[in-house]
Design a protein around this nucleic acid. Structure first.
Length: 633
DNA sequence: TTAGGGTTAG
């Protein structure tokens, strides 16, 4: 309900004196405001432009306001002054998807003979143009600024918003010109207003993917605000430069800059991807010590961090304490349980979510189907897929089809899987065929394996994955001729296997290892540990599995090679660097190999260690000679 | 004024 006067304002009678401002300042809700507004309409005081402007400001710009109401207040103003125009333009420029209103009102302002846009008008108008990526309108506004003179083009707010507009639209050359013209690059030190300009430029470079230029500017800054740090961290983290994101985050601590809410939400995904649990725990503690509220967004990031860093127990704990849960929060926990192989729990949480009235999203169904597939729950998987389509009315995406093919393939239902693919309304991608190929390898289905590998090779001729998988199928059946043929093909086409890489975090530092890696400062001790491990494992009945080695070498060399796989080096380093019985956590960029998987089982028993390996697809919790995946991965 | 987030098949 809008309490707006329907009677036309009396033009000739002067408005009564304005009521004290404190009345509106004490408003806490729209309800309070509406009461005062009604009173002003009744007494005629609304005709005082200052009183009306004050009402407008509350509705348009405060947290408890209502922009729709503000628009009606503005439209009813008989002669809106410059202040009111600026207020409403600013309010719309800051509201998602409504920036166009700012431009419409701005053009009304240009036609209004009683008001002139001023230095407070242009920043918002430029912001609106930037938000909508309307560079043509933006350039026209830029012309207006120059044409009107009065030093508008030197105003720091206008300049920074001009630079922002060009930067956000990707026109970095124009942004750079203005940036350099502003003189900030010539100043010895960066002052509180200039930082904004630098930040805007950094953000612009990151948006166009020019990380070198962004970093150069960042490094040149003699003073930075938390926004400068956040910009670099979020930029790196969202574009896959996880190590760089952590490096900046750590540099930030060294320079005694306090991270804020945005910093933490931005850095957590990088921590998750790298599996840096210690750092993740530090972030969580930092929230608690500095009273940074763990809301649904930060909570989701923490849940994801704990689950991706191997601590599903902590992920559950954070989930239970989050004050409100949105679909992403639910997805984070369900996805976490799923990659840890806790399919039943994942399905329990899914049901809980539905009971609480939260509608599952398509992303959630991906986690649920993936959980079913890893646990071999074929019937449940079929049921959920059906539920998603028929009841939830969601269109399956390629990821859902991928899960289903994986589910059917792992269960050995080859015909059903192939038929499923043939009926897909979307063209199957490489991942779909890889899922089926993986199933062929698992069940030794050479005939289908060859066909699928051929399809994959046509689809992505330079991707080593299909060649490696086909070679592994031959190898698992002892067909060495087949293995050599694939090897020859790879050699002819100069296709190389992606190098495996594993890492382990100790005291907040990430130690990375490649196969046969000797580059670590403690390489000698690691080598001795690997020898000791090899002897102890053999004494306990371990037999090396060298089937998956692609290279042409004799058996002894093959055995040595598999024993120097990156994940084993990481474990050896963990064993010599941590206290007795302490759990070890390893992250690997590819899937764990069969030999490493069986070795980890032995190591967990012989050395009495819990070993958690996160591979490309999921978690393996090794304890007392058993893996949580039950060898089904 | 500037940055503004989290979840996703193999």
């Amino acid at each position: 309900m809008f309490l707006l006067s329907n009677s036309p304002p009396l033009r000739n009678s002067p408005p009564p004196p304005c009521i004290p401002q404190a009345e509106i300042k004490s408003c806490k809700t729209m309800r309070d405001l509406i009461q005062i507004h009604a009173k002003k309409i009744k007494t005629g005081r609304i005709r005082d432009p200052f009183a009306a402007a004050e009402i407008l400001q509350f509705c348009a710009l405060t947290n408890h306001g209502d922009l729709q109401y503000a628009r009606l207040v503005f439209d009813r103003m008989e002669e809106p002054n410059c202040f009111s125009f600026n207020t409403i333009i600013r309010a719309f420029s800051e509201t998602n998807n409504q920036s166009i209103e700012s431009l419409i009102i701005f053009s009304q302002m240009l036609y209004n003979e009683f008001v002139e846009p001023n230095r407070f008008t242009f920043p918002s108008v430029l912001k609106a143009c930037g938000n909508m990526r309307r560079i043509e309108e933006g350039k026209q506004v830029h012309c207006q600024i120059i044409k009107r003179g009065s030093g508008l083009d030197l105003d720091e707010f206008i300049v920074s918003n001009l630079v922002r507009m060009y930067a956000i639209c990707g026109l970095m050359k124009d942004a750079r010109k203005l940036f350099e013209k502003s003189g900030v690059t010539r100043k010895v030190s960066v002052s509180d207003g200039n930082i904004v300009l630098w930040n805007v430029m950094i953000d612009g470079y990151i948006r166009i993917g020019d990380f070198d230029s962004a970093r150069k500017l960042f490094d040149l800054m003699t003073q930075r605000s938390v926004v400068s740090w956040n910009g670099m961290i979020a930029g790196y983290a969202q574009n896959g430069y996880f190590k760089e994101a952590l490096e900046i985050f750590q540099k930030m601590q060294l320079e005694n800059v306090c991270p804020n809410y945005v910093t933490l939400v931005s850095v957590l995904p990088a921590i998750s991807r790298l599996g840096a649990l210690e750092l993740g725990k530090w972030v969580h503690l930092y929230c608690q010590r500095n009273k940074i509220e763990v809301d649904d967004v930060l909570g989701s990031a923490l849940i994801d961090m704990y689950s991706k860093c191997g601590s599903i127990e902590m992920a559950i704990q954070v989930f239970e304490r989050v004050p409100r849960r949105n679909p992403v929060t639910w997805n984070a926990i369900i996805g976490g349980l799923s990659v840890h192989g806790l399919a039943i729990d994942a399905l329990d949480y899914f049901n809980k979510m539905e009971t609480e009235g939260v509608k599952p999203t398509d992303v959630c169904y991906i986690s649920v189907l993936s959980a079913c597939s890893h646990a071999g729950l074929v019937d449940e998987g079929r049921l959920y897929f059906d539920q998603m389509v028929r009841i939830a009315g969601l269109d399956p995406r390629i990821e859902h089809y991928g899960c289903m093919v994986d589910l059917l393939g792992r269960a050995g239902l080859f015909e059903e899987a192939e038929e499923f693919i043939s009926k897909m309304p979307i063209k199957p991608d490489g991942v779909i065929w890889k899922a089926l190929l993986g199933a062929c390898k698992m069940h030794g289905n050479v005939e289908m394996g060859q066909r699928v590998a051929k399809k994959l090779m046509d689809l992505a001729p330079s991707d080593s994955g299909s060649y490696v998988a086909l070679s592994n199928i031959y190898a698992s059946l002892g067909d060495w001729e087949g293995v050599s043929a694939v090897r020859l093909m790879m050699k002819e086409k100069d296709i190389r296997k992606n190098p495996g890489c594993s890492w382990i975090e100790l005291d907040g530092t990430i130690h990375e290892f490649l196969v046969e890696d000797e580059s670590h400062p403690r390489a000698r001790e690691i080598r001795l540990m690997l020898q000791e491990m090899s002897e102890k494992l053999r004494l306990n009945g371990y037999k090396p599995d060298t089937k998956q080695v692609l290279l042409n070498m004799d058996e002894e060399e093959r055995e040595s090679l598999v024993f120097h796989h990156s994940e084993k080096i990481a474990v050896a380093f963990g064993l010599i660097s941590t206290k007795k019985n302490a759990p070890l956590q390893i992250v690997k960029n590819l899937r764990i190999c069969g030999d490493c998987h069986s070795s980890m089982k032995f190591i967990s028993r012989i050395y009495n260690r819990r070993i958690i390996v996160r591979d490309r697809n999921r978690f393996h919790h090794f304890e007392n000679g058993v893996c949580s995946c039950m060898d089904y991965w």
